[in-house]
Design a protein around this nucleic acid. Sequence first.
DNA 1: AATGAATGAGTATTCATTCAT
DNA 2: GATGAATGAATACTCATTCAT
Lengths: 214, 214, 214, 214
Amino acid sequence: MTERAVAPGARADMVRNRRLLLAAATEAFAERGVDVSMGEIAQRAGIAKGTVFRHFPSKNDLLAAITLQLLDGLVADAEGSGTADDPVTALRAFMTRGVEVLVADRAFCEVIGRPSLQHAEVRGAIDRLCEAVGVLTDRAKAQGAVRGDVTGTDIVLLLGGIHQTALPLLEQDPQAWRRYLALAFDGLCNTGAAALPHPPPAPLREHQVTSPGA
Amino acid sequence: MTERAVAPGARADMVRNRRLLLAAATEAFAERGVDVSMGEIAQRAGIAKGTVFRHFPSKNDLLAAITLQLLDGLVADAEGSGTADDPVTALRAFMTRGVEVLVADRAFCEVIGRPSLQHAEVRGAIDRLCEAVGVLTDRAKAQGAVRGDVTGTDIVLLLGGIHQTALPLLEQDPQAWRRYLALAFDGLCNTGAAALPHPPPAPLREHQVTSPGA
Amino acid sequence: MTERAVAPGARADMVRNRRLLLAAATEAFAERGVDVSMGEIAQRAGIAKGTVFRHFPSKNDLLAAITLQLLDGLVADAEGSGTADDPVTALRAFMTRGVEVLVADRAFCEVIGRPSLQHAEVRGAIDRLCEAVGVLTDRAKAQGAVRGDVTGTDIVLLLGGIHQTALPLLEQDPQAWRRYLALAFDGLCNTGAAALPHPPPAPLREHQVTSPGA
Amino acid sequence: MTERAVAPGARADMVRNRRLLLAAATEAFAERGVDVSMGEIAQRAGIAKGTVFRHFPSKNDLLAAITLQLLDGLVADAEGSGTADDPVTALRAFMTRGVEVLVADRAFCEVIGRPSLQHAEVRGAIDRLCEAVGVLTDRAKAQGAVRGDVTGTDIVLLLGGIHQTALPLLEQDPQAWRRYLALAFDGLCNTGAAALPHPPPAPLREHQVTSPGA
DNA sequence: AATGAATGAGTATTCATTCAT
DNA sequence: GATGAATGAATACTCATTCAT
């Protein structure tokens, strides 16, 4: 109510610009990675360079906002999948959606891979994602359909790995990731295999020397 | 023999410079990725910037040369492993070595992931690698230890994927890739799983719209 | 009275805003010099940037207004000092007050030193100041306590010079200007010295090629 | 010999460019202060922007180099003046030369006044200057021609003050500083005046809270 | 063949000022 | 009249690449 009554003009334009900006940035970063210049993003959005910096005071802030968008979407997906009937189907559906998102976004992996680009917010969102996925995973494990020694963090990390596996094929076969998702999933479901030779990952943090405990 | 055939004076210097340059560039790219500047590489090599450009007319050429080096090393590994006794052990050993190499080299994945950075030569080397690994794979498949629907190209692509999976953990747990290698390997060995839902990749090519069929 | 004559609603707000703005700008310019941004001044004043520009159409106008404020204060000081008993004491007191003001205000000297920043109004105020100080000076000269060949303009200029002398010491010794004020004053009182080798300054004007004569 | 024999070409061009650059920068900074852009300096010098940064990796470095040039010149002047017969004449000559240099250079005072612009080298040169001038001053004091409570640092600071005093007159009367130099000098020579009310300055340092000792 | 100086397009970011609401 | 979003020119600095010596 307050918002609809007050300042429908300037506010509306700003919201529109912000939307244009986020759309342009999302697209540009997705297509060409974190190295697109702020200038080009402004051009794509059809707004002035200064306006970009008014909305996001630094390039990292813009990157963080877009990365957060994606991560939050995935968190919602993971939490939404939780209510589905079959845990294994739910997990598979989430992973499918997750890789789909990554495949469409070059910058995402770059941000995830470079701690220097990360905001605390981004790391927080990653933690939330790992937790939400952990719930999904635990349910599938409880059913005995997924090996017992994988964690939510493993699954989240695998999304990036699956994407990377198919990346060199992206142009010649944009759906190739489905092959590697299936392969990875078969690894997860290989309940007869020996225990994994390396301990599960601690929560993803920027600088953490050793993961205590066995 | 090759070296003794040409003038020993100036040529010897050039060969030495090339060696210094390649060593410095390999190290620099490995540590900090494709964004290291040519200037820093020249400095690390102890030669002048102009000399770098005499040996490699562009940064991409230098990157290609180094990538080739790595790829050729992997080809040799793959071919060498071929003579080992147990095919599955040989395959696993090759993959271990392969991921090890990637983990130690930030630039490698960046180059593989960006078609714009690739030379025809690089793609050639990738093809050779895929073939050599194909031999390894076929032998393991023949033994029934590895599922029948994976190819050498799959294996090569998986190396990058496994590396990427562990990348966000690199600082806090540099050996984490071993976990994901094991997981991927268990997927490969899951001979009871359903057939993969997507056809095997065609040879890796830069711009190839779609491989019809299937 | 002046304020009550006009519409009390919107106008009152404007007057209040102007007061806030001038206070904030005075403080900001004093602390950090002419390079503070209009944005920061608006923030400090708690008003919008657009409002700042409504009151002062350019940064130079704002600077001029503030400089005027200061100059008018000094004029009042000079005129007030005129009624004190001892002319020499009065002159010294005025100079002390003048340097004190400058020391507390980084922007003031910057404006005085850059003709490009000056408005006609500012120059007018400077002229008035020089005149008022001229009266003080003449009285001291009449007493024979101050050498006969200095003018009010000389005194005004000396304020800036004394400030500048102590400026490099500002952090380590904020009162150092007192030393140089005393030294300068001793020069003024050195009635036994030879006549100054250069004629007294004409009124300060922005672009005035040369004053012929001498 | 070594220099004349080796590389007379490239070196010569570089030296020429450096000379052009320093000349352009000196002139530009002198005329318009520290706010001239590196781009304009490059243009004035007739060289590319990148070349400016090759010679001086940052604007502060360039400013420091130019400031050092000036300071070293003054140190040489001060030391050269030491051999003149009459100490008072020598001191006056040095001060005349000093103010002359400052009058011709707007940036100099800005650099001296803003510790943030100063390199350690610059502060070192200032110290050397104060020392050299201290020798001159002591000789004049020994003769009884200059009051006993002024130091070399005082004299150096006065140069900036005298310049600032005359600065508003610069356009209409470029020689006005001679008037204020004479006035200041008469203050220095006023051996009959009371002792200065504030202790002499400690060596000029960036952050130094109190000057110990009485 | 080696050098390293010169080039100039490109980058993120700031800021006075304008203008739609 | 107040707001604050949009603008776009400007700034310091970087870097792959070229070229004179």
